[in-house]
Amino acid sequence: MAKQHISFSLNGEQIDALVEPRELLVHTLRETLNLTGTHIGCETSHCGVCTVDLNGVSVKSCTVLAMQAHEGEVTTVEGLANGELHAVQQAFIEEHGLQCGFCTPGMLMRAQRLLQENPDPSEEEIRWGMAGNLCRCTGYQNIIKAVQSAAKKLQQEA
């Protein structure tokens, strides 16, 4: 099938790409645009390692067509740091919120979005707000600590 032209903002930069109509956003990001920080874990929207921001909401890019990003705004883990590490990135390091690192980009993308939706979440709200992102290594406890710590820091900065 003929490739289609799409144009979108990726980590603040305007991007043009030719994609197959059936192409998944995660493949466009990883294969065409060489941003391999966004991972693939289950291809059924369960694990969340492919989580990115699309137009201000968390989406699982393994089940979003690249064409759905047309004229939209996409942020990936590569776009999170702005000169210095984002508060969630720093907090994950400080609180030992990652081990193998495979779920981490998706976790971070969800965490930073959650903290925009709810700047001061309780532990319960973090657990429910991040339930779409799986981790096999950490037992989640230190991720929760990291999100809480990042929330505090972001609130102080605000």
């Binding site: 391999t36 920080g37 883990v77 590490l85 990135q89 994950f92 690192g101 981490t104």
Partner: peptide, 8 residues
């Protein structure tokens, strides 16, 4: 390991 992983 972490600085690499948190930046994708």
């Amino acid at each position: 390991e972490d600085p690499r992983f948190v930046q994708g």
